[in-house]
Simulated assay, not measured.
Amino acid sequence: MTYPLTGLTDKVAIVTGAGRMRSIGRAVAVELARAGCDVVITGTGRSPEQFPDDEKAAGWRDIESVAEEIRALGRRALPMVADVASEDGVEQLFDAVESELGPVDVVVNNAAASRGNDRVHVLDLDVAEFDKVIAINLRGTFLMTRSFARRTVARDGSGSIVNISSIGGKLGGPGTAAYSASKAGVQSLTSSTAKELGRRGIRVNALCPGVTATSRLDDWSQDAWDAYVDANLPLGRAGEPVEVAHAAVFLASDQAAWVTGQCWNVDGGQLTIR
């Protein structure tokens, strides 16, 4: 006997920031397709010169490669370059999706600023770096949420938003002022919008991943990450992107119909209670 998740067949989902080969966004997009969704995958239009070595070796083509995976599962895929921090860009994205695939039912706000010059002591944090992280991680989540909610309410529809936050937004940490602030903001935005939109048929939740085996871990050596995991994660290993994706698909499904306003940790037990 199986116990399948329901409510996602033939739904239209947008997953932002889903073009990297080792990423949560890619895993969420593919798992939503397995659950029956047609999926829009957004990316920044990265130049192949910016790809890490494993993507170059694999002949990776960013959102086009993810779209091929989704089509191989028998679902429609629409890869789109989009700037989620741009109000006009977000509206154009939704207009294009509605024209091509129809109204959107699920939004997964996964796009995030890459690790970069923001990972410094707050005394050395440049305002432009801070603004860039906030613009993509928090402003982008807000703009996507607002556009989706306005359009869903206008058609008297219903839907689900899953925001990808981080336990970093709960823990904070040295050298992560911009990132941690942005992810804490996503959690607060999740709470407020869930309370505002629940009576309009829209559920809003967030996932807070911990150490997950994506390309974001490339800035530390494997030995350094192994030591961190050993010291901090009760389950004794980093998570896989698909494990975060499974939680996202559940939150979008009928089986989570009474779940909203939550910020769930998916972190191997690193952070508990809160």
Score class of each variant (00 low, 15 high):
residue 84 V to W: 11
residue 102 G to V: 08
residue 60 W to N: 09
residue 72 A to R: 15
residue 99 S to F: 09
residue 78 L to E: 02
residue 68 E to F: 01
residue 100 E to Y: 12
residue 105 D to I: 08
residue 65 S to Y: 04
residue 111 A to E: 03
residue 83 D to Y: 10
residue 75 R to S: 04
residue 101 L to T: 11
residue 90 V to E: 01
residue 107 V to P: 03
residue 85 A to K: 08
residue 77 A to E: 00
residue 79 P to G: 00
residue 67 A to G: 04
residue 63 I to G: 10
residue 90 V to T: 11
residue 91 E to C: 12
residue 61 R to D: 00
residue 78 L to T: 02
residue 109 N to L: 09
residue 86 S to D: 12
residue 82 A to R: 03
residue 109 N to A: 08
residue 96 A to N: 00
residue 69 E to Q: 13
residue 87 E to L: 06
residue 58 A to Y: 03
residue 85 A to N: 12
residue 68 E to H: 02
residue 96 A to R: 04
residue 111 A to L: 02
residue 104 V to K: 09
residue 99 S to W: 09
residue 99 S to E: 14
residue 101 L to W: 11
residue 62 D to T: 06
residue 91 E to Q: 15
residue 112 A to Q: 02
residue 82 A to S: 14
residue 66 V to A: 06
residue 58 A to Q: 15
residue 62 D to F: 04
residue 101 L to C: 04
residue 105 D to H: 15
residue 96 A to V: 01
residue 58 A to K: 11
residue 81 V to Y: 14
residue 84 V to I: 15
residue 106 V to R: 00
residue 91 E to S: 05
residue 102 G to H: 12
residue 105 D to T: 14
residue 104 V to C: 04
residue 90 V to W: 12
residue 62 D to R: 03
residue 79 P to K: 05
residue 62 D to H: 14
residue 96 A to Y: 12
residue 68 E to Y: 02
residue 99 S to P: 03
residue 78 L to A: 00
residue 82 A to Y: 11
residue 99 S to I: 05
residue 72 A to E: 12
residue 90 V to G: 03
residue 60 W to L: 01
residue 92 Q to L: 06
residue 96 A to K: 05
residue 85 A to S: 15
residue 78 L to I: 00
residue 70 I to A: 10
residue 87 E to R: 13
residue 107 V to G: 03
residue 65 S to H: 07
residue 71 R to S: 03
residue 75 R to N: 03
residue 83 D to A: 09
residue 107 V to L: 15
residue 109 N to K: 13
residue 73 L to H: 08
residue 105 D to Y: 11
